[in-house]
Amino acid sequence: MNLAKWRRYGISYLFLIPSFLFIATFLYYPVLLAFFHSFTKWNLVTSEWVGLDNFKKFFNEGTFATGAKNQLIYTLTDVVKAIVFPLIGAELVYLVGGNKIKYLFRTGFILPMLLPGVVSILLWQNIYDPTNGLLNQLLHAMGFTSTHAWLGEEKTAIWSIVMMGLPFISGLPFLIFYAAIGNMNQEQLEAARIDGANGWNVFTKMHLPFLMPQFKIVIILTILGSLQDYVKIMILTGGGPGVATTNPAMIMYNAAFGSSQYGYGSAIGVALFLVILVLTIFNLKFLKTDY
């Protein structure tokens, strides 16, 4: 009896071996390595204990201040881009009405999502190109004589990255808001309108409160995403010119894969992870969004 029971358990555990082998080797073990080597000088083969030196170096280096300031810019603008524009888009699609037109607009807005993300980034890199870029050609055609290397000049580079993806509607937030607005109680909205509420009142008093859970999800996901987003920076500017567009994640990448300081890179990764962890716990405890 007991033996048969344990045989059954054995089969369960056997079936779980592949999953756990994978996550142990390629997820949990790297986490342990990251924490351990954040206190070492590491060249992937040998490592030397240096205590908190990596962390001290990270926070004391001049690039950290720039990186943190840039991160603030990226995160704040990312949140605005993820809330305001997709919401305007979704509301307008409903305002314009007519099922066929709605479908047409919705499809149009999500069309760019068909392309792999890297291709969209490369297209914007072309738009900003100093010689053959659309932006300079457009300015030229409108009679402006001064042209810019948008991604290559210290003053314009970070804002060029921020403006990438204009008008910021295409994406998951648009779909989330669109679906949520469609799920609102139409009779209630109609009743409010009959009682004399104008469109603006319906929007601020009924739509916005109703969409609060969606806002919370989108904001927290956007903040977490923006802290971890460096692929776009890497492709567009590599963090430059100088360190003008870098962020902490980009500093981590450059430390590890640019100058082979793997211990230092691990330390930055750990520091960023702790920030992400605090935000996640805060979200689970206080905002209680479900994603």
Binding site: T25, L27, P30, L33, A34, H37, F273
Partner: peptide, 15 residues
Amino acid sequence: MMIPSLLTVVPLYAI
């Protein structure tokens, strides 16, 4: 799901 790839990218490369 709590582990961001940011944390593991360097040690994963070592592995």
